[in-house]
Deep mutational scan, measured.
Amino acid sequence: MIFPGATVRVTNVDDTYYRFEGLVQRVSDGKAAVLFENGNWDKLVTFRLSELEAVK
């Protein structure tokens, strides 16, 4: 189960963010908004829950 605050990895091989890890900001309607941070940039991207896996 994916909840806000969880760290997730993108599993969709066709996505630009494949294998990126980010922090879930919100979850609704089968989608999750994931925040990616890297140095001087932040990006908030929405994914279907089926495209994400929780990082242990």
Rank of each mutant, 00 (worst) to 15 (best):
G39L: 09
E21N: 05
A33N: 07
Y17K: 03
V24W: 01
S28T: 10
I2L: 06
Y18V: 02
D14S: 12
S28H: 13
D42R: 15
P4A: 09
V55I: 11
V45M: 07
K56F: 13
A33H: 11
L23I: 15
P4I: 10
E53K: 07
G22P: 00
V13N: 06
E21R: 09
L23E: 07
D15M: 05
V55G: 03
V13M: 09
T11A: 06
Q25K: 11
S50C: 10
G39C: 11
D42A: 15
G39H: 09
A54S: 08
V34Q: 01
L23Y: 08
F47N: 01
A54C: 11
L44F: 06
F47R: 04
L23M: 09
R48C: 13
Y17S: 03
V34A: 00
A54H: 09
V13P: 15
G5T: 03
V13Q: 11
K56S: 13
L49D: 03
V13R: 12
Y17M: 08
A6F: 07
Y18K: 02
V8K: 00
W41D: 10
D29G: 10
S50H: 09
I2T: 02
S50P: 05
T16P: 15
E51K: 02
F20C: 14
S50R: 05
L49G: 02
R26K: 11
F36T: 00
E53T: 08
V13I: 11
F3I: 12
K56E: 13
P4L: 07
G22N: 00
Y18F: 09
T16S: 11
T16N: 09
G22F: 03
K31G: 06
M1G: 13
A6P: 01
E53R: 06
D29I: 05
V27H: 01
V8P: 00
W41K: 10
Q25F: 11
A6E: 07
E51P: 00
N38S: 11
D14E: 11
R19P: 05
A33R: 07
T7A: 08
D14I: 08
Y17F: 10
F3R: 12
E21F: 10
T16K: 14
R9V: 09
V27A: 03
A33D: 15
A54K: 07
V10S: 02
R48G: 10
R19Q: 13
V45C: 09
L35D: 02
L35S: 06
G30W: 04
A6K: 05
F36P: 00
I2G: 01
D14M: 12
D14W: 11
V8H: 01
D29C: 10
K56P: 14
G39V: 09
V10C: 05
